[in-house]
């Protein structure tokens, strides 16, 4: 189980490195797709089927959006050389970040022991014990998302609505035409 998860994570890391380093934008987008589907399988192994479903679906949509953004442009390959010095500095700095992050993990409980086991008054314990009786939903994730923490979900819906609204406003065709007309005058 843990070994399988580790292999999956290594696969994801390799995919991410290829996605960041390759010069072809389309290949990069496809590698991100591989990373996302690997994440979906990892969620399934971690006993989170809801998150796995939503990860697959969202991944497909992100892929469609990104491919549409890159494929119709004539400039799909990256030109220009890399700055060697800047890259070395960045790698050293990121290594320091990595070391500090490793120090943080020493204070976390080990893998496989969630906080509900150690914390007596954890909210998740209440959700697990009385979720079915309170909300009538057998799926506890749904009962947390839409009953106990429904205002969080309201905020999420608002954020999603605003983001889509912003994207529509940015991509609107009319305003651009008007602006071009103004520039021609």
């Amino acid at each position: 189980m843990i070994e399988l998860l580790g292999l999956l994570l290594i696969f994801m890391i390799i995919g991410a490195i290829i996605a960041v380093e390759t010069r072809d934008l389309l290949a990069s987008v496809i590698c991100v797709g591989a990373v996302g589907f690997g994440a979906s399988i990892a969620f399934l192994l971690l006993r989170a089927p809801d998150v796995a479903i939503i990860q697959i679906v969202v991944e497909v949509l992100v892929l469609v959006i990104l491919i549409r953004a890159t494929i119709s442009r004539d400039l799909t390959a990256i030109s220009g050389d890399r700055e060697f010095f800047g890259m070395v500095v960045a790698i050293v700095l990121l290594f320091v970040v990595f070391l500090f992050g490793m120090r943080v993990f020493e204070h976390l409980p080990p893998f496989g022991q969630p906080a509900i086991e150690t914390l007596a008054q954890s909210p998740a314990r209440v959700y697990i014990e009385s979720g079915l009786r309170d909300t009538g939903a057998a799926n506890l994730v749904t009962s947390v998302l839409l009953d106990y923490r429904a205002y969080d979900t309201l905020g999420e819906a608002t954020v999603l609505f605003t983001a889509i609204l912003g994207a529509l406003a940015i991509l609107r065709k009319k305003a651009r035409k008007r602006k071009e007309d103004r520039e021609e005058e």
């Binding site: 989170a48 969630p114 906080a115 509900i116 909210p123 959700y127 697990i128 979720g131 994730v141 947390v144």
Partner: peptide, 8 residues
């Protein structure tokens, strides 16, 4: 059961 709160 695993913790449902982080999943949500």
């Amino acid at each position: 059961s695993v913790d449902p709160l982080p999943q949500a």
